[in-house]
Simulated scan of single mutants.
Amino acid sequence: MQRMGMLIGVEPHMIAEYKRLHAAVWPEILDLISRCNIRNYTIFLREPENLLFGTWEYHGTDFEADTAKMAADPKNLEWWSFTIPCQKPLASRKEGEWWAMMEEVFHLD
């Protein structure tokens, strides 16, 4: 199992829409996340900085294949057409990242 954390901004005028979307995530998206071996997925919002912090656990054996499967899924592409306009990537993110990935420096079970 691998824990992951990520950070992105959210457009201030899109916060209510982002919350609305995530209050009723489409069942197909929830199923896809599970089929891609992601568990304990949580997104937190920090205002007034308008930052989203996401964390999850990856329970699979081929993260690249699972993320490729997720990125290619037609229903997920439709979902992203609603969520991506709400997001504001950090300027400091690495090449190829949308959400800026974070290093785990402490964990207690």
Rank of each mutant, 00 (worst) to 15 (best):
Q2F: 07
Q2M: 14
Q2E: 14
G5N: 08
L7D: 00
L7H: 10
L7I: 15
L7S: 10
L7Y: 04
L7R: 15
G9L: 11
V10H: 02
V10K: 00
V10L: 05
V10W: 01
E11A: 15
P12V: 02
P12I: 02
H13N: 14
I15P: 01
K19H: 04
K19P: 01
K19N: 07
L21C: 10
A23G: 15
W26P: 01
P27K: 11
P27N: 10
I29C: 10
L30G: 08
L30D: 12
L30T: 11
L32P: 08
I33K: 03
S34L: 13
R35G: 03
C36I: 10
I38L: 12
R39C: 04
R39F: 00
R39N: 07
R39Q: 13
Y41K: 08
T42D: 06
I43H: 08
L45Q: 07
L45W: 05
E47Q: 15
P48W: 06
P48T: 04
E49C: 02
N50W: 02
L51N: 01
L52G: 05
F53E: 01
G54N: 04
T55Y: 13
T55K: 01
W56L: 15
E57K: 06
E57L: 00
E57V: 00
G60Y: 02
G60E: 10
G60F: 04
G60D: 09
F63C: 00
F63Y: 14
F63D: 06
E64Q: 12
E64W: 00
A65N: 10
A65W: 02
T67D: 08
T67F: 07
T67I: 14
K69S: 09
M70I: 07
M70G: 02
A71W: 00
D73G: 03
D73R: 02
P74Q: 05
K75W: 09
E78K: 12
W79C: 03
W79Q: 07
P85E: 08
P85L: 03
Q87D: 04
K88Y: 04
K88A: 13
P89E: 00
P89F: 02
L90P: 03
L90K: 06
L90Q: 09
A91E: 12
R93Y: 08
R93L: 04
R93W: 09
K94A: 15
K94N: 12
E95I: 07
G96P: 08
E97R: 05
W98Q: 08
W98R: 10
M101P: 01
M101D: 10
E103G: 02
E103S: 12
E104P: 03
